Computed example of a mutant assay.
Amino acid sequence: MARSKEFDPDAVLQSALELFWRRGYEATSMADLVAHLGIGRASIYATYGNKHDLYLKALDRYGEKQNPELVRELSQPGPALPAVRALVRRFAAEAADDTCRTRGCFVTNTAAELAPHDPAAARRVELGWEHLETLLHSALVRARAQDELPADRDPRALARMLLVLMQGLRVVGKASPDPARVRDAAEQALQILN
């Protein structure tokens, strides 16, 4: 008969996500995980696999938590452009906020740290970006159909521009002590939607 786990795998995964998010993949050792999670190495391996497997599961968890919020924000009935503007401004505000900027975005952090040499991490980053781009594209198509956006604007190209801007805001926000830098960039970029 199999022994039941003496820990909550879901809570431990969330705790691992928070540690990886704060420290990054390379700076987090297996000893760090054991100490932070409060479970033994054998339990980590048996439940999640190796450190890399655990990191990927944490990255998946991050996406599961973020995606419904993005869908809700960009899929509300009514005018679509205010929701797009609000999302871009939220990204800028988070990038400029001292509490948020030290952690940054887990997906963006993964893109910078692992994606160039880790195909599994790169695929998850790409899936996250594809999801955000698709949500932005859908909202911009609605905006154009509702005459909020001029007919000559390309919703796909605008969605891609906003995706790159939003990810760039997060990168610059992590390193820049000047919150006006990301806020001003976001506001200038949003002018293209007028």
Results as ranks from 00 to 15, higher is better:
residue 68 P to C: 10
residue 75 S to K: 08
residue 73 E to G: 00
residue 87 L to F: 10
residue 53 D to E: 15
residue 80 A to D: 05
residue 79 P to H: 11
residue 60 D to L: 12
residue 81 L to D: 05
residue 49 G to Q: 15
residue 47 T to K: 06
residue 105 C to G: 09
residue 104 G to W: 00
residue 52 H to T: 11
residue 97 D to I: 03
residue 49 G to C: 15
residue 110 T to P: 09
residue 87 L to M: 12
residue 91 F to C: 13
residue 107 V to Y: 10
residue 68 P to E: 04
residue 90 R to H: 09
residue 58 A to I: 09
residue 97 D to C: 08
residue 90 R to T: 02
residue 76 Q to I: 01
residue 83 A to D: 04
residue 58 A to W: 06
residue 82 P to Q: 08
residue 98 D to H: 13
residue 86 A to S: 15
residue 75 S to M: 11
residue 75 S to C: 09
residue 74 L to H: 05
residue 57 K to P: 13
residue 91 F to K: 11
residue 75 S to P: 06
residue 69 E to H: 05
residue 61 R to I: 03
residue 85 R to G: 00
residue 61 R to C: 02
residue 47 T to A: 08
residue 70 L to Y: 15
residue 107 V to K: 05
residue 80 A to W: 01
residue 100 C to Q: 08
residue 92 A to C: 13
residue 56 L to G: 04
residue 53 D to H: 14
residue 110 T to W: 01
residue 49 G to T: 04
residue 84 V to M: 04
residue 56 L to V: 12
residue 96 A to Q: 11
residue 48 Y to W: 11
residue 99 T to D: 10
residue 76 Q to W: 00
residue 83 A to R: 09
residue 98 D to T: 13
residue 86 A to I: 12
residue 109 N to G: 14
residue 107 V to R: 01
residue 110 T to A: 00
residue 82 P to H: 07
residue 97 D to R: 06
residue 98 D to L: 09
residue 104 G to E: 02
residue 52 H to N: 10
residue 79 P to D: 07
residue 107 V to D: 01
residue 73 E to L: 10
residue 49 G to S: 13
residue 58 A to C: 14
residue 92 A to P: 05
residue 58 A to Y: 08
residue 103 R to M: 11
residue 87 L to H: 01
residue 106 F to Q: 02
residue 48 Y to H: 10
residue 62 Y to P: 03
residue 97 D to P: 07
residue 83 A to N: 01
residue 99 T to L: 02
residue 46 A to L: 15
residue 81 L to H: 02
residue 92 A to G: 02
residue 101 R to I: 14
residue 106 F to T: 03
residue 84 V to P: 00
residue 94 E to K: 14
residue 106 F to S: 07
residue 52 H to L: 12
residue 67 N to M: 10
residue 69 E to V: 11
residue 56 L to D: 06
residue 66 Q to R: 13
residue 93 A to C: 00
residue 91 F to R: 06
residue 62 Y to M: 02
residue 64 E to F: 01
residue 97 D to N: 12
residue 94 E to P: 05
residue 88 V to C: 07
residue 51 K to M: 09
